[in-house]
Design a protein around this nucleic acid. Structure first.
Lengths: 210, 210
DNA sequence: TTTTAAATTAAACAACCGTTTAATTTAAAC
DNA sequence: GTTTAAATTAAACGGTTGTTTAATTTAAAA
């Protein structure tokens, strides 16, 4: 019946199964019975441990977003030049989302749907924090004369994350288009080509005189 | 029972209601009974006209994507300079998606989900066609010496559409962040600021020497 | 070892799901 | 006006949904 952080092994096992299923079939497309079967537990255990299906989702989001806090913020104390910081930030973003594909796919849909209004305060705060870090780096680069003066900081994240998400959400299409027919090829493309493309895009945007 | 294009007024009315509901609550989150109630018809009419709920979705996608074909292709015969063509292409993209928010939201999710494998051949062909048009424009710009030599054409669309979709899918977050508290302000921001940002991003990427 | 609490189970609950039925109404064709 | 087809309806179908129950097993505390 835990509602915060005290999750036992069995609860975590359920969360992992639920994560995969929610990511693949959506929340409404996944039944408690399917989760139970996959996790090899009795269907009553979900209600017993989490209270309800929707509370299970909330627990999952909380469980997964807790780990995401750090990483980006650490760039503030980093002492590399601004552009390098930006490249690091992009790399961190991609690695982070790539390593947490499931929950990000779930969040991506849950944020867009009007059906449930989940408490995503923690996630929103994470985003706000990351945005502040980004703004600081941009400002630093501008003061150093490396970056352009007029930059829409609020729209950099949509370009960074949007490019990646669009690629990620349309996996089947790009796998076919770019002939990435194994998981390894696909993963590799993301960590090299796609990452470089996003870094180059942001770099061009930041230092190009228009 | 129509399966191609012969839709009567009542069928179209049903499709419009279904589009809004599917976009808001997802396909699995919307019941035939809800559609029927909203459209003020008997629940049996959906099966009567479309055969099944899934076929209703297919009809909706077909009905909506039919109109999308033209627009982009017309740029091939356009005689403005390459960069202007790119800007036009971006404007067309944004207007098109913005005017068809519902179906794009549905497609965005349906493409990502593993639950149903709908026949999205028509949509894939549309994308392939648009990509070819884009490649032609880039090539033209390169030959004219306006664009850089090394450009990952396949990744331009993820940046253009990804930026817009990310903004669009996270509406609540950006409405709050950018204080766009009326629909008019929001729409206006998309058609001016966001459009300009995407155009500037692509421009920088295309002509910036790295 | 006995007591007490936690974990697990099968079964049942009512509500809802997509779909089909058979009867009735409406409109078109003759 | 009669015939015929299309549209519409209420009701029922079997199946699935999330959740709760009460009984049983397992494990921890005494």
């Amino acid at each position: 019946m835990s509602n915060t952080t005290d999750l036992n092994d069995k609860q975590i096992q359920i969360l992992h199964v639920a994560e995969t299923l929610f990511a693949d079939k959506g929340f409404d497309g996944t039944s408690i019975r399917t989760i139970a079967k996959e996790a090899k537990i009795n269907i009553a255990m979900v209600s017993y441990y989490f209270g309800s299906k929707e509370r299970l989702l909330e627990s999952l989001i909380l469980y997964r977003t807790k780990d995401l806090k750090e990483s980006i913020g650490s760039l503030v104390t980093d002492d590399s030049p601004p552009l390098e910081k930006i490249n690091k930030l992009i790399t961190i973003y991609i690695h982070q989302i790539n390593a947490n594909k499931g929950i990000y796919r779930i969040l991506h849909f849950e944020i867009a749907t009007k059906k449930r209004d989940l408490n995503l305060k923690a996630f929103t705060e994470l985003r706000r924090g990351n945005l502040k870090t980004l703004a600081l780096i941009i400002e630093e680069g501008q003061k150093a004369g490396v970056f352009q003066k007029e930059i829409a900081v609020d729209l950099l994240t949509p370009t960074i994350l949007g490019t990646f998400f669009h690629f990620h959400m349309n996996k089947a299409y790009f796998v076919d288009l770019l002939k990435l027919h194994t998981d390894e090829l696909y993963e590799n493309y993301i960590l090299t080509n796609l990452t470089k493309h996003i870094q180059q895009t942001i770099k061009a945007l930041l230092i190009y005189e228009s």
